[in-house]
Design a protein around this nucleic acid. Sequence first.
DNA 1: CTTCAATTGTTGAATATTCAATATTTTCAA
DNA 2: TTGAAAATATTGAATATTCAACAATTGAAG
Lengths: 144, 144
Amino acid sequence: MAKSNAPITEHLAYLLAQANREINRQLELRLSKEGVPVEQWRILKVLSDGDGHSMGDLADAVLLNHPTLTKMIDRMVSDALVYRVQDPNDRRKVLMFISDRGKVLCKKLNSLAVDQEEHILESYGDKSTSELKRLLESLIDSSN
Amino acid sequence: MAKSNAPITEHLAYLLAQANREINRQLELRLSKEGVPVEQWRILKVLSDGDGHSMGDLADAVLLNHPTLTKMIDRMVSDALVYRVQDPNDRRKVLMFISDRGKVLCKKLNSLAVDQEEHILESYGDKSTSELKRLLESLIDSSN
DNA sequence: CTTCAATTGTTGAATATTCAATATTTTCAA
DNA sequence: TTGAAAATATTGAATATTCAACAATTGAAG
């Protein structure tokens, strides 16, 4: 039986929040070299496959809710990183695409992100990293 | 060598964000029964030791930055869950304490949170959970 | 001692996020 | 075929967060 008086630092929810906050902070720091928030990097990366993604799909993929995504996309369209196309098969939908400018930026961001992953591998270890990834994936799976 | 064209779902930062989002959403759902955001539960839990905690310490412990914490504490003071005392040893500091009312609420919240942890244990497994916790702690350690 | 830098917490303005309501299009049952 | 319900994206108002500036206190060097 779980103890209700356990310190907060022993709760899974807290450990996840703490780890996420720290890793995200580090990534943020790298990406700030290009003046881009983490969410925009995610968006560019998802759109990098060249396919059109609806706003709904994209929102799920980049962990943002719809209105937040809409407004972030507005900014990215202003910056000419992505563009909207109405889905010809279902005109309720908007398909998002990455622009050439977006692709160029995405490459730079990818190398900054890889830089971070390598840094983690060094200090945290190869074994631990892949084991952690495996466990996280499995946790996410079991939560659906 | 890490691949820069790896899908975003393979990045540790993304997996952490995704897992954190999901687990936090579940916890939020439970705590909403008492109308309390997750951060307030964390605050109450940290203050449950009965000691006075400065705003700075508290901000670190509950993963909020200072201005956000100040404003959340303002609300909690209005709700009579916590109270401020000026630190007699260092009058720049404010020491936060939990009230009796806060303690009562905290107990209810704890059992809701334990409920969630038990639910995770069931669907995700005892072994995986403790192994994941261990790896997260170690990741956090190695990031300092 | 005095003064200047560092620490601590709060405030207000700027920014971002969220919730509820809306508009548009599609689906599907009658 | 029509009309109601569902799906999709956006908008605007309400709310929350963040950044930079501020005030108060302490520490420490000269």
